[in-house]
Design a protein around this nucleic acid. Structure first.
Lengths: 246, 246
DNA sequence: AATTAGAAGTGGACTAGACCACTAATTTGT
DNA sequence: ACAAATTAGTGGTCTAGTCCACTTCTAATT
């Protein structure tokens, strides 16, 4: 009955157990009884202490995969629809997960002095330089959004040398610079398309567009990126998932 | 040096410690050294085991108040701007937190057969009844949003008897029915105002509006409420907070 | 003076137990 | 046959440690 875990490995036991359970949940292996084995049983099965099992289960609970009922047991969350929700990924990753082929047309890529609002978003001092990237974002070859991105220049030297037409910006940043995106703040508003944006997106001026202002932070709360993305309202909806995280 | 915790009380020790630390963080008591006492020191100070301290700290970490650095210490997250972010609260709570006085004009409140999309959102069977609530939402007396809410009728008998003009719907639901809102799914899109909605909100037809489709769930993933809210784009922006929760 | 090795301190992981509050099924008493 | 009390099982909390990987500062060595 004992399962095989990589002992003394790099991956913690609780993470391995969580992953194993995650797969079993995905395969509907708890469907009949619809509840997981008890914590004590899992501890025995994996030859670990109960606290370690609880750590694994808590991870799954935070992911929304399971929930506990005191005095009863642990249950699988049977959400059928696994809708695409907005997360920390960028445009490329989002389109890929929707089954669309993302591409970009770079309109601007230059270093410049930060404007006041960008300075505030990125918490830079006066006179600080930023990298200004302006792109038209395409999905399956069709214009989907117009995006303006600002990055602190001192964090990303020689960014200009990368091909941002095909590659995801986020991929370039994480692979070439030692930075991890940890959380983000987004402000969404509806607006009427300006003539310039309307022309870029191939819609009529005054048509509704969805504007997303985003600031991405590292774990130590340092701003990494500030972006304004204008989506065609007839092609794009933003989906969010809200939860009482405790 | 020892602190006073309510032993053998209803509130767990880790929750009490978390609350105590939360207050100290709010009061900037760790500002000078900018890092919290070590886990071992906190354990000694509160006369609990280190695991209990770690449980308290993890709670604060999930709330985004602190972060850990392996081998170094635990630090306070110095986010100055504590922007209002969209959470599980309803319109009333959101407006109150913005310093505005919410009120409502009830346009419709009746039981009716669920339409197809409402049935799907609330996961009801064919022929199920829902409570349909249509309200104009005001902030400081001015029209801010037009909201259509659908609730499974069998969950909320006699809902019609409550005064929804002044009271928050969420408050009525949680106080009078044994249900806890746990998480929600929101879809946001930009649209042009229809003539009807434009008249209600006092804007011109065709002006951009922000439409929020929301489904609220209990912890066991049962749909409790489905709502469509149409906000004036010139008065309202939606703010979200995204994080890699692990 | 610069480098290196070590010590001290940190959070991360984990153990092997314990007691509690709660639920649900079972047994017992009427 | 019904109701009440018992019991087994569950997750929630907590203890008092251990060992590890990592960072930082210090002291010894070159």
């Amino acid at each position: 009955m004992q399962e095989t875990l990589q002992r003394n490995g790099i991956v913690p036991l609780h993470a391995q157990i969580a992953e194993a359970l995650r797969i079993q949940i995905q395969n509907d292996e708890f469907k009949e009884k619809e509840h997981l084995p008890s914590e004590r049983e899992l501890a025995e099965r994996y030859l670990v202490s109960r606290m370690t099992v609880r750590q694994a289960l808590q991870k799954l609970r935070l992911e929304g995969l399971i929930y506990h009922e005191r005095g009863v047991g642990t249950f699988v969350n049977n959400r059928k629809i696994d809708v695409h929700t907005r997360n920390l990924n960028g445009f490329s990753e989002e389109m890929l997960s929707l089954g669309l082929k993302p591409s970009s047309r770079v309109l601007t890529l230059q270093r410049e002095l930060a404007t006041d609002d960008v300075m505030e978003n990125l918490r830079l001092g006066a006179g600080a330089e930023v990298i200004h990237l302006e792109r038209l974002r395409l999905a399956d070859g069709e214009a989907m959004a117009f995006e303006q991105t600002f990055l602190p220049a001192y964090l990303f030297p020689k960014l200009e040398e990368f091909d941002l037409t095909k590659n995801s910006l986020y991929q370039v940043l994480t692979e070439n610079y030692d930075l991890e995106m940890h959380h983000a703040e987004e402000i969404l508003e509806a607006k009427a398309a300006t003539r310039f944006v309307a022309k870029q997106l191939g819609i009529r001026a005054g048509a509704p567009v969805l504007v997303v202002h985003r600031v991405v932070f590292s774990e130590s709360n340092q701003p990494i990126e500030s972006a304004h993305t204008t989506y065609r309202a007839d092609r794009y909806r933003a989906t969010f998932y809200l939860s009482k995280n405790t």
